[in-house]
Amino acid sequence: MMWPAAELLDTTRFLLEPLFEDHADEMVDVLAFRDLYHFTGGEPPTPEVLRVRYARQSTGSSPDGKAGWLNWIIRTKTSGQPIGFVQATLTGGGDQLVADLAWLITPPAQGSGAAVESSAAVLAWLKGRRVRSVQALIRPDHSASAGVAQRLGLSPTSVRIDGEVLWEAKFPYS
Rank of each mutant, 00 (worst) to 15 (best):
M1E: 11
M1F: 12
M1N: 12
A6R: 08
E7G: 03
L9I: 05
L9C: 08
T11W: 06
R13L: 03
R13N: 06
R13H: 11
L15R: 13
E17D: 03
L19A: 01
L19E: 00
D25A: 11
E26H: 08
M27E: 04
V28F: 02
V28R: 03
A32T: 07
Y37F: 15
Y37I: 13
H38Q: 15
G41M: 10
G41N: 10
E43Y: 11
P44C: 04
T46A: 02
E48Q: 07
V49A: 12
L50I: 08
V52C: 06
V52E: 13
Y54I: 07
Y54T: 04
A55K: 12
A55R: 15
S58A: 14
G60M: 06
G68A: 09
L70H: 06
N71Q: 13
I73M: 08
I73S: 01
K77Y: 02
T78S: 12
G80D: 03
Q81M: 08
Q81K: 11
Q81L: 10
P82S: 01
I83S: 00
G84W: 00
G84H: 00
G84F: 00
G84R: 00
F85T: 01
F85G: 01
A88H: 04
T89M: 10
T91F: 08
D95I: 15
L97R: 14
V98D: 08
A99G: 10
A99D: 06
P108N: 04
P108Y: 00
Q110K: 07
G113Q: 01
G113T: 05
A114Y: 01
A114F: 02
V116E: 02
V116Q: 02
A124M: 03
A124C: 03
K127R: 15
V131Y: 04
V134P: 05
A136F: 04
L137G: 09
S143L: 15
S143D: 12
A144Q: 06
A144P: 03
S145H: 03
A149L: 06
R151T: 03
L152F: 02
S155P: 04
S155H: 14
G163F: 05
E164T: 07
V165G: 00
V165N: 00
V165A: 01
W167F: 11
E168M: 13
K170P: 00
K170V: 13
Y173K: 14
S174Q: 14
S174W: 13
